[in-house]
Design a protein around this nucleic acid. Structure first.
Lengths: 349, 349
DNA sequence: GGAATCTATTTGATCGATCAAATAGTTTCT
DNA sequence: AGAAACTATTTGATCGATCAAATAGATTCC
């Protein structure tokens, strides 16, 4: 196998200098048209590909973004992050970026990994998922001036107006507001909600979407609302228990919304009256079972993340403080309505 | 921010030469103990990290493996590959390797991507998933002498004895054989099987596991067996239909095995008699619903893939033809038995 | 004692690209 | 016509590491 051609080989073949070849690839505008064509022909003819590492060494940029592959959680909700990863990889590809994976066992370990990848010039920036209030990772990245964007707003102080970093998030409030509206428009009045305990910013956001839509309607009292809500940690069994509790306290329900598909799946199991149940995340399980769900449109999130990472801010907020460019993007989720075709367990074939 | 320290900085601080620093990192054995300690101290003190691209440029190896992120299939079975990806990333990390993702729209496009990553020295080798008989990708990789290992045996001619490339696969036959045995030991005689149409090597492998176990038992005739089998493409709805058909033709079933969790989930839906159903892949959905399933132990597959990729063959078969090292690894799957706790749809709370 | 051998460390060259500055070649302006 | 301003292209240096070969220092052997 012949050695791979280098810029010098191409330059020789095209009768120009190395730098001109480099210019054709990186700033084609400054090369005269006929020269450019000649060089391009030589590139094609020799099958030349730039050596990525050599380029990185010189330019000090890698065109690669790092993302931590979270440990599998319960596997149902976890698939949202997998879908996001797919979308991110696809979108990154379109922009000539690569995605490098890494794992970590704890936030501290993750910081070590971030440092390793950054210092080794392996990546230009990071995408962080599953951020939480007071996340040590974002703090560290900011302090070290490293580019990054989070999927998830910085829950805490002044998220929106003066963010410490760039972020993209899905408007859970809007998702549940829309889902509640849809249920109401289908005739439901007693719309239950199974959600997560309060320290969760995400959970609180979704819960308020439901509450606000219910209160706007004006046909339920605060007391009714309290009865229509069950708080529980995430999980299928927990969803079943919550549903049973709701049915016990409320009696007849017109619809139930859940903070996740795991809970919704659980709820479906204790649902002999076939009350419409809506989940969150539009996971494969929702599609398989025929469960309405709020879809996070990970494609839009991925696009937003990359826009912020490669855009004017270049993944850093403290750089250009005067800019009017948005420093975050809020993605509207999409409600996917389904008939639960798959559920009739009691009818025989 | 001060510029990152380089080998030269470390050398200066430790009072040795660049190369000695390099040796401490790459062949510590040849450096005298006290010198090594001095250098290590300097490295720690300066927080030195080798510049990955510079090293790659010189050594012509990237310590990175490429893997294509398959487009989402139905999402249920697709999660096996996601789990594999998680496992691969973790195992790679332990061996100092990185995982780079890419996407492709077709096998041809994928070859273009393989070439790009290889020529750009971005990766040392590839992991291929979802291979099929006559796969153009493996052919291309072999022709170009590029390191790779496949997850999935090369269905076709002489898989086992004279493989054209290195591979790791899960023994689907053993998985279904074991599942069938388990059902039989629990008292089942009429064990149905819902599988995939025949061009699928994987499907045929699993099917034979069931058939062989049934025939070994010796209490069913060939005719019985034919009636106990339904062939269908993958999917939840298809599983439901297949289950209905089985119940129609066989009447009373003692157990049902399926070629996938998607089919098993579907089968569960048309299962008022609560016949034990076993799926394949042990996806989150199986865990959530309480479905027995055959677990592919992706961790073992990932470890095997990396062993072959970094081992004696270095991801290439044609290199050392005399070696007695195994050229493939067959992983035994593990049967996960579950009680389907979650299914009682008809009982109210 | 001096050549031969081995060990530990150093020096110069190199991987393949791009940056920064220098050089031709053109056009514009007075 | 000749200086100034631009355009297109080339040359030398450099990014940070490792390779290959050279050097010094310690040991062994006859």
């Amino acid at each position: 196998m012949a050695a791979l051609p280098t810029v010098t080989d191409v330059a020789l073949a095209a009768g120009v200098s190395r730098q001109t070849v480099s210019n054709v690839m990186n700033s084609p505008g400054i090369v005269r048209a006929d020269t450019r064509e000649r060089v391009e022909a030589a590139i094609a003819q020799l099958g030349y590909r730039p050596h990525a590492s050599a380029r990185r060494l010189r330019t000090r940029r890698s065109s690669t973004i790092g993302i931590r592959l979270d440990p599998m959680i319960d596997g149902i909700s976890g698939s949202v992050l997998d879908r996001f990863l797919h979308a991110l990889t696809e979108q990154a590809d379109k922009r000539g970026l690569r995605v490098l994976l890494f794992t970590a066992t704890s936030p501290e370990d993750e910081i070590t990994q971030l440092q390793r990848l950054n210092d080794g010039a392996d990546v230009d920036g990071f995408v962080l998922t599953s951020t939480f209030a007071g996340d040590p990772r974002t703090k560290w990245l900011i302090e070290n001036g490293i580019s990054f964007v989070t999927f998830g707003r910085p829950w805490g102080s002044n998220d929106m107006d003066d963010p410490q970093h760039l972020w993209v998030d899905v408007d859970g409030w809007a998702g549940l507001h829309q889902a509640t509206r849809a249920a109401q428009e289908a005739g439901a009045r007693r719309v239950g909600y199974i959600g997560w305990p309060s320290p969760s910013g995400t959970g609180e956001d979704r819960r308020r979407g439901w509450r606000d839509a219910m209160l706007e309607r004006g046909d339920v009292s605060e007391d009714d609302l309290a009865a229509l809500e069950v708080v529980t940690v995430d999980g299928v069994a927990e969803g079943t228990a919550a549903m049973q509790q709701l049915r016990r306290t409320v009696g007849i329900l017109d619809a139930v919304l859940c903070a996740s598909d795991s809970l919704a799946l659980g709820a479906m199991i204790a649902n002999p009256d076939r009350v419409p149940v809506t989940g969150y995340d539009n996971t494969p399980i929702a599609a398989a079972i025929g469960l309405s769900s709020v879809d996070q449109s990970v494609e839009e999130v991925a696009a937003g993340v990359l826009d912020l990472l490669t855009g004017e801010f270049n993944g850093r907020v403290h750089g250009s403080p005067e800019s009017l460019e948005p420093r975050h993007r809020m993605v509207k989720p999409r409600l996917v309505l389904r008939e639960f075709a798959a559920i009739p367990m009691d009818e025989s074939a």
